[in-house]
């Protein structure tokens, strides 16, 4: 399995070399955001207001971490189910979002948006919250603090272990269930 070490923000050239099944160790800044935060991002866009972070080349991690215990930048921080953000992802990809990170299936609309805008969907291991937390070296809330675990955080990651689930060329890693009928 090819393994790439990539730095954020991601570029078209980064995305073009990735194929479903590749391992990526991601470094740099990523942004946390899940259900409620996405809804608020849409409201900002609808109102023509600026977003709390620059979408160009950005990576959004679908995560709602547990509270940081004393002496650690963040608590457990594994992915949440990505499908719930399918309603919002195409609009963000059109505005420059290069990668989303989560677990579980994406809709056809999101896959199309990734092809149209050169973007990828990374899977992180669900339920490995303590393990993934180790790769997050800093974290600060940059928007929607009132949302608690759903606030948008700017996170610094070091060799964050990811798998390319959907690439920008229609490739997908997930196994198709084998049904008889």
């Amino acid at each position: 399995m090819p393994t790439y070490t990539l730095n954020t923000p991601l570029t078209d050239a980064d995305i073009e070399k990735l194929r479903a099944g590749d391992v990526v160790l991601l470094n740099g800044i990523i942004y946390s955001g899940r259900d409620a935060a996405h809804k608020k991002l849409m409201e900002l866009l609808d109102a023509g207001k600026p977003l709390p972070f620059d979408l160009k080349g950005a990576s959004i991690y679908y995560v709602g971490p547990s509270p940081a215990p004393p002496g650690r930048p963040i608590g457990a921080a594994g992915p949440t189910t990505s499908g719930r953000m399918d309603a919002y992802a195409p609009r963000l990809h059109a505005l420059g979002l290069k990668a989303s990170i989560g677990k579980g299936k994406r809709s056809d609309e999101v896959k199309q948006a990734m092809r149209d805008n050169k973007a990828v969907y990374f899977g992180a291991t669900g339920g490995a919250g303590a393990l993934l937390s180790k790769c997050i070296t800093a974290s600060k809330i940059i928007a929607f603090e009132e949302l608690g675990p759903e606030a948008i955080r700017e996170m610094t990651v070091k060799d964050f272990p990811l798998l390319v689930i959907n690439d920008a060329f229609g490739g997908e890693l997930y196994a198709k269930p084998k049904l008889d009928d």
Binding site: S66, P69, R72, G129, A130
Partner: peptide, 27 residues
């Protein structure tokens, strides 16, 4: 790939027991 997931989950369990960070952020 499946083996690697089990490896990570075992490592996660060890780490959680040691650091008291939750096994999963969704408690």
């Amino acid at each position: 790939a499946g083996k690697e997931i089990f490896r990570q989950l075992l490592e996660n369990a060890d780490l959680s027991a040691e650091t008291k960070l939750p096994l999963c952020q969704d408690c």
